[in-house]
């Protein structure tokens, strides 16, 4: 049994795709609220109650959107009051709130996505498209810190050798050019070593295979299957317009039609998966710990 974040990155990536995207394509307040609820619940399960404090600033999105939308959109039949000769309507206000909540829930889900999907996992996901891309990305990620360090070293070396003036802006620009020039020859010269090291280890002798430290276990497949079934159910219902809201001039909800209820339930189950896995893992660990 492993917690959500330890599952195969492809399964996790696809999960996020299914949990984030449907909400964005259907301005349905019920769906958004389910999404937001589980997004927050997962952060709290993962990082403790303190996570709530970190998520609080995201509340500005629904607030701002709720205020701004009625100021520009004057459609809707339920006029609340008149501002500068323009009607402010309940429909526009509710629509604004929903849009704000969509942004908010997306950001909340992304906040856990960022902490779970580290670069090596993303690399694995995109690399599964092609081993070549995987290698190129991996080399690029290797070079970024290497070059960064070297640029810092060169800058310091140029300063402490005291060979160059640094009196005004033009000197500073010249300094920057010098650093670039040193950097280019350094990168080319030492790139040869990297190339040698690659050929010495047989790069290019045949078809490359691809190794990763992430495996496919039963639980990964289970996560994939659950995501697919629940996610596709939600997507199907949305695609068929079963969840569509009419906002203007008057709000018409899809109500509690069977299709809508199934979709809400499927999506709620989908959203609950990470929380469930996290809590189960913790409970299991606590019981194991008590036996140690």
């Amino acid at each position: 049994m492993k917690s959500f974040k330890d599952h195969n990155p492809i399964a996790v990536f696809i999960y996020y795709l299914f949990v984030i995207v449907p909400v964005m394509f259907c301005t349905n307040p019920v769906l958004v609220c389910i999404s937001l609820f589980f997004g927050i619940a997962f952060r709290m399960a993962k990082d403790g109650a303190g996570a709530l404090k970190k998520l609080l600033p995201f509340a500005v999105f629904p607030v701002i959107s709720m205020i701004v939308n009625p100021l520009f959109v004057h459609k809707g039949v339920t006029v609340l009051f008149i501002l500068n000769d323009n009607p402010v309507t309940l429909e526009a206000l509710r629509y604004g709130l929903t849009i704000g909540l969509i942004i908010c829930s997306t950001v909340v889900w992304f906040s856990s996505f960022n902490s779970i999907m580290t670069t090596d996992k993303l690399l694995y996901v995109f690399g599964s498209v092609s081993p070549k891309i995987a290698l190129i990305l991996s080399m690029a990620l290797r070079y970024i810190p290497l070059y960064g360090q070297q640029i810092k070293k060169i800058r310091q070396a140029q300063q402490v050798t005291g060979l160059y003036k640094e009196d005004n802006a033009i000197d500073k620009i010249r300094g920057g050019m010098r650093i670039m020039s040193v950097m280019v020859s350094w990168a080319l010269e030492n790139g040869i070593i990297t190339a040698d090291s690659m050929t010495a280890r047989g790069y290019g002798v045949g078809r490359r295979s691809r190794f990763s430290i992430f495996g496919w276990q039963k639980s990964d497949k289970a996560l994939m299957a659950a995501t697919a079934v629940l996610g596709l159910a939600a997507v199907l219902a949305i695609g068929l317009g079963k969840l569509a809201y009419v906002w203007y001039p008057q709000i018409v909800t899809p109500g509690a039609s069977p299709a809508a209820v199934v979709c809400y339930a499927a999506y709620a189950l989908l959203g609950a998966i990470p929380v469930y896995l996290q809590l189960k893992e913790e409970a299991r660990w606590r019981s194991l710990q008590s036996e140690i």
Binding site: D120, S138, M198, S209, F211
Partner: peptide, 22 residues
């Protein structure tokens, strides 16, 4: 520094074997 090709220790260890197509 310059003999290292990839960004992760485990990937570097596997690099040669990947080239061999294992």
């Amino acid at each position: 520094e310059h003999q290292i090709v990839t960004d992760k220790v485990w990937h570097e260890l596997a690099f040669g074997l990947e080239n061999m197509g294992y």
